[in-house]
């Protein structure tokens, strides 16, 4: 256990010192404030809870930005250490390969959490201070979107490791990470949309679509958060949440399942890697 903490601590130290945390939280903060500004412009203070409105846009923002930040954080984890020769040093000590990967995971998730909590936290505080009619509900909503963003981020950190242990060059790992991001948050949705258009009332839309949606951890995150917002604001209509053959709240299981699969897979591959 102490080896895991040692490795995690070093990753956190590096993440803070090379300004990763700062940069990522500024990006999240800027986008969050931008969305808050755009979102509140037409409706102004007439909404019941301005913070809750912002939270809705934050969950859309998270779908794109959090996986990207997580992948950029993790793609280098193993390939980079092979490149620089430090993996040989680490693996020459008595630590196990599983410990190395898990230590990095803990460290990277902490780095990501610092960035998300800082970025969204500051954005939330600004909206909270600037808007009227903001009560505890908004704070709960913000806490929900932050914590589920962390789950989504941790999942993509783990997925980034699969890319990182599968290749030996950092550059290749980076390309793989970007491809994974493109596929999961852009292309996958486009493909689903195409499927829906092709068979609006068919088997695909009725039966397959909801499952295909939540198989993708990023879409599952969206389904979960939209359902939560719908329940609170009862505005209806969101990401197909109404037509779900299962409780949309269950969608949040998907990222956790992927997290476990990705960690297991990358550990198994790392065991075969020649450092």
């Amino acid at each position: 256990m102490s080896a895991v903490l040692t490795i995690a601590g070093t990753e956190i130290r590096i993440g803070v010192r090379n300004r990763w945390v700062l940069l990522a939280s500024i990006i999240l903060l800027v986008f969050a404030l931008l969305l808050a500004l755009l979102g509140s412009a037409p409706s102004g203070a007439t909404k019941a809870d301005s913070l809750s409105v912002v939270v809705a846009s934050l969950s859309t923002l998270s779908v794109y930005l959090v996986p990207l930040i997580a992948l950029l954080l993790s793609f280098d984890a193993i390939a980079g250490e092979i490149d620089r020769g430090t993996l040989q040093l680490t693996l020459a000590t008595p630590v196990s390969r599983g410990q190395v990967l898990f230590g990095k995971f803990v460290g990277h998730v902490v780095v990501l959490s610092l960035a998300v909590v800082l970025g969204y936290g500051v954005a939330g505080a600004i909206v909270f201070a600037a808007a009227q009619n903001t009560g505890m509900d908004g704070i709960f909503d913000l806490a929900r979107v932050i914590s589920t963003s962390l789950a989504l981020g941790a999942t993509f950190v783990a997925i980034g490791y699969v890319a990182s242990v599968s290749v030996r060059q950092t550059g290749t790992a980076a390309a793989l990470a970007v491809a994974i991001w493109l596929f999961t948050v852009v292309l996958y949705d486009l493909a689903l949309l195409g499927g829906l258009l092709a068979s609006a009332d068919g088997f695909f839309a009725k039966t397959l679509f909801p499952y295909l949606l939540v198989i993708n951890p990023a879409d599952a995150f969206r389904v979960f958060n939209m359902a939560a917002i719908d329940a609170a604001a009862s505005t209806g209509l969101a990401a197909g949440g109404n037509a779900m053959p299962f409780l949309p709240q269950l969608a949040i299981i998907s990222p956790f399942v992927w997290m476990v699969i990705a960690l297991g897979l990358s550990t198994a591959i790392l065991r075969r890697v020649q450092p």
Binding site: T6, R13, T93, P94
Partner: peptide, 26 residues
């Protein structure tokens, strides 16, 4: 213990932090 032919330690860490890292792993 091993010293590889070419190794590039993380630039952001101090010498003491690096040695201490491996000392803890060992």
């Amino acid at each position: 213990s091993y010293l590889p032919e070419a190794v590039a330690f993380p630039k952001m860490l101090t010498g003491r932090e690096i040695v201490s890292f491996y000392a803890k792993l060992k």
